[in-house]
């Protein structure tokens, strides 16, 4: 912990960047884990909220010249607020329909933003030059820690138990007095807040964002791989999976950029077959 706090002042840029990227992925994996791990609604499009957060932040900085963290906070809240009506509609879909529906949602928003001149269209949205990497680092660290704290709370709370119940059998949960619609929308909104907040940091970090990067399904693939590696629906799974996987991912990217997607897809397939429950449940079983 202390290491993470002093890191930006002690380490060189490469390692700070690596920790930053790790924190982003860990955060994304935690966000995904709420709606998909706890509530059981596998989403292939949570990146929608990351992109929205990024664009809203960029827009706010350019239009109102506010301090970037305020803009990013607004971006996160906007993504979260958007999740309520979206969840009300999309969470009527189940299983593969929801998963692909969310994938389609991310692509649709990407296409819309590409078509809008106000967002810089396909060329991307640029911020005024000069960003303070250290502040992005702390912002992302805070969001990732917040995501972990939120997950710990969910895991211990009545809300979390209701989510697990509706994950197992939504109809039965309903007849056991669980307000399934309200609870799953709440889970969806929390699951949107985290990527929304991270997206704001991301655009400030890069000083720039383009639709293909902001709504890349690659991010979804990676957060899913991370959550599955660590353990879907567990408190520490996304952390362990996220930290491990980011290192593997960065190494792959550095060594085999042209095979990167292929290897990552293959990794997901292999994981599902060889370690379907992930590291955390496997360790739990061993020590029980």
């Amino acid at each position: 912990m202390a290491f993470l706090i002093v890191a930006p002042h002690r380490l060189n840029g490469y390692f700070v960047n690596l920790i930053y990227i790790t924190l982003v992925y860990v955060g994304l994996a935690y966000g995904w884990n709420i709606i998909s791990g706890y509530a059981g609604y596998f989403s292939f499009g949570q990146i929608t909220f990351f992109g929205l957060g990024a664009y809203a932040t960029g827009f706010a900085i350019n239009a109102f010249h506010v301090y970037w963290m305020l803009a990013a906070l607004a971006g996160g809240i906007l993504a979260c607020a958007f999740a309520f009506p979206l969840g009300y509609v999309m969470l009527r879909l189940r299983g593969p329909f929801f998963a692909m529906g969310m994938f389609g949602m991310a692509q649709t928003v990407r296409v819309l933003i590409t078509a809008l001149p106000a967002t810089g269209a396909g060329a991307g949205l640029f911020l005024p030059p000069g960003s303070d990497v250290t502040s992005v680092y702390y912002w992302t660290l805070a969001v990732a820690l917040g995501a972990i704290a939120l997950t710990i709370w969910i895991d211990r709370s009545a809300f979390g138990l209701r989510l697990q119940a509706l994950r197992e059998d939504e109809q039965v949960a309903g007849t056991l007095a669980v307000d399934v619609t309200r609870d799953k929308i709440a889970a969806f909104a929390l699951s949107a807040l985290i990527p929304g907040l991270l997206g704001g940091g991301f655009i400030y970090f890069l000083n720039y964002i383009e639709p293909d990067a902001a709504f890349s399904s690659r991010f979804d693939l990676q957060s899913i791989v991370m959550a599955i590696l660590g353990g879907v629906g567990t408190v520490w799974g996304p952390l362990i999976g996220g930290v491990l996987m980011t290192q593997i991912s960065e190494a792959l990217w550095a060594k085999f950029p042209q095979f990167y997607l292929m290897l990552f897809g293959g990794l997901l397939v292999a994981l599902l077959i060889l370690l379907p429950h992930g590291i955390v449940p496997a360790l739990k079983r061993r020590y029980e």
Binding site: R156, S157, A158, G160, L161, R162, Q164, A165, R167, E168, D169, Q171, V172, A173, L176, A177, V178
Partner: peptide
């Protein structure tokens, strides 16, 4: 139709949440 992945106790606790917000 039990909640398969939950413990027996938690299966029952879901119903009890109708009257309390404490797990």
């Amino acid at each position: 139709r039990p909640f398969s992945a939950l413990s027996v106790l938690d299966n029952v606790a879901v119903g009890a949440l109708a009257f309390t917000s404490s797990k």
